[in-house]
Nucleic acid binder design. Structure first.
Ligand code: SF4
Ligand code: SF4
Lengths: 137, 137
DNA sequence: CCATTAGTATACCATTTAAGTCTACTTTAT
DNA sequence: ATAAAGTAGACTTAAATGGTATACTAATGG
């Protein structure tokens, strides 16, 4: 029941970009230094954020990363799912056949976990990076 | 961001006991068979539930397990925490010094994750095993 | 009082996942 | 052409997960 380290790093990276003037392109190296993230690992994370459409990347000299949209339009859920994939709090919520009990259809726990999962996703979705950046000041 | 297998097994075991007539003592073997849980693994889980005060155990002939209190008084949070320990969705919420950024005090993400964590714990706490057992029928 | 039943305590094991690193390659500005 | 920056993907190490095995302790009842 825990977010992984990569997700926390992703929060830091996106927060970092969110607090910059709109459209400013910044190299991974700077983010890594400022946010104390291992450089090579950060690159992998930024790649995932790029594929998820949260940031845009530019290669070559003067390359780097920039937010793909306004911070207000980026939720914590977007970032979590970019790194970890869709939130699934139990096996049977990923693939029903994972249940050794084979009672998924009639399992009250399954239904309840699903509604808890929806609530959790909702909580992450409520928070966007404009808010986060503002409360950082 | 996922519950582990042991926790799911614990849900099944407690649900099993909750649906029995109050005070009925049942051996681990029966729970294991009925709920399709590996026997030796279930014993470890039941031990944790016992230590957490959720079930009581009796050794020897006619021994087994019984709920320590009414199903209505046992929440999903009780069970999750019995197996996994307190819900902590990020490292810095376990131990602030885990943050390599060392900005915990002023980190907006930290504060936000804490409030999401409270909401999540609240969701688990809202659900008790009397409800679960009723909706199993 | 001892055989049987059932839980307890630990140690062990195999896989998988997490976190991070390395090497080699591609793109682009100057 | 060259240096700066991102991309690709193999590799590594350590820890967590899920499960077993062995030996022990307690209770019952014949
Ligand atoms: S027992 Fe219920 S909650 Fe657990 S895996 Fe099966 S369907 Fe899902
Ligand atoms: S950056 Fe913020 S959220 Fe992440 S570990 Fe540090 S304090 Fe916690």
């Amino acid at each position: 029941m825990k977010l992984n380290q990569a997700t926390d790093y992703a929060f830091r990276a996106v927060l970092h970009l969110s607090c910059l003037p709109r459209g400013r392109v910044v190299e991974a190296r700077l983010i890594a230094e400022e946010q104390k993230i291992p450089m090579r690992f950060l690159l992998k994370i930024l790649r995932l954020l790029t594929l998820a459409g949260i940031v845009e990347s530019y290669r070559g000299v003067n390359g780097g990363y920039v937010l793909a949209r306004a911070p207000a339009e980026i939720t914590m859920l977007d970032v979590v799912e970019a790194i970890e994939g869709p939130i699934k709090i139990n096996r049977c919520l990923i693939a029903p056949e994972e249940c050794s009990r084979r009672a998924v259809k009639h399992c009250p726990v399954h239904k309840t976990l699903f509604s808890i999962q929806q609530a959790l996703a909702g909580e992450f979705k409520k928070r966007n990076f404009q808010e986060l950046c503002e409360s950082a000041k």
